Simulated assay, not measured.
Amino acid sequence: MGLTLYWHPQCQTCRKTKKWLDEHQVTYEPFHIVKTPPSREKLQELYEKSGLKLKNFFSTSTKKYRELGIKDQLKTATDQELLDLLSSDGMLLKKPILTDGEKVIIGFKEEELEKYTTTSKM
């Protein structure tokens, strides 16, 4: 299975990740995270495979995150409610998300990208 990159062209971290992948000639399928966000089912799969807490999938720096009071919702909402919220708007997702269907990286972490790409070479 190939790599999938959920990214947003205006996100500096996304551009940095995309540039790194391109420079290292790593093949991936890009998806504009706002125009083509991952489905709720895909988000649940990414969450389960990531080993991260669901709160790590939220972009805390967005206006919508603050407007919706998500910080407070994280304390009491179920995982199902949080997944519904994340799948409602791609801008709520921390970006970029890179996966091969088994492993998941959120954000730009060069050391993880190096390991990831050497074990996931296409």
Score class of each variant (00 low, 15 high):
64 K>T: 13
75 K>N: 11
77 A>N: 13
74 L>H: 02
57 F>I: 11
15 R>K: 14
1 M>D: 04
121 K>W: 06
56 N>D: 12
100 D>G: 07
90 G>Y: 07
102 E>N: 14
72 D>F: 01
57 F>V: 08
42 K>P: 00
56 N>C: 08
44 Q>L: 09
6 Y>L: 06
76 T>Q: 12
119 T>H: 08
76 T>V: 15
39 S>R: 01
60 T>R: 15
47 Y>S: 01
37 P>H: 11
78 T>A: 02
27 T>F: 08
10 Q>W: 01
97 I>Y: 07
122 M>I: 08
69 G>F: 08
39 S>T: 14
77 A>H: 14
31 F>G: 05
109 K>C: 04
52 L>Q: 12
107 G>H: 09
54 L>I: 15
79 D>C: 05
13 T>I: 06
100 D>A: 08
77 A>P: 00
76 T>E: 11
102 E>V: 06
105 I>C: 00
10 Q>L: 11
83 L>E: 08
60 T>Y: 01
49 K>Q: 12
102 E>Y: 05
107 G>R: 09
26 V>R: 10
53 K>E: 15
119 T>R: 05
39 S>N: 04
80 Q>Y: 03
19 K>H: 14
35 K>S: 13
44 Q>D: 05
118 T>M: 12
86 L>F: 07
60 T>L: 06
72 D>M: 04
50 S>T: 04
3 L>D: 03
77 A>M: 11
42 K>H: 06
8 H>Q: 13
94 K>Q: 12
36 T>G: 01
4 T>M: 02
81 E>L: 02
17 T>G: 10
97 I>T: 10
105 I>G: 00
2 G>R: 11
15 R>Y: 10
6 Y>N: 03
50 S>H: 03
7 W>A: 05
52 L>R: 15
69 G>T: 02
67 E>D: 15
68 L>W: 15
79 D>V: 04
21 L>D: 09
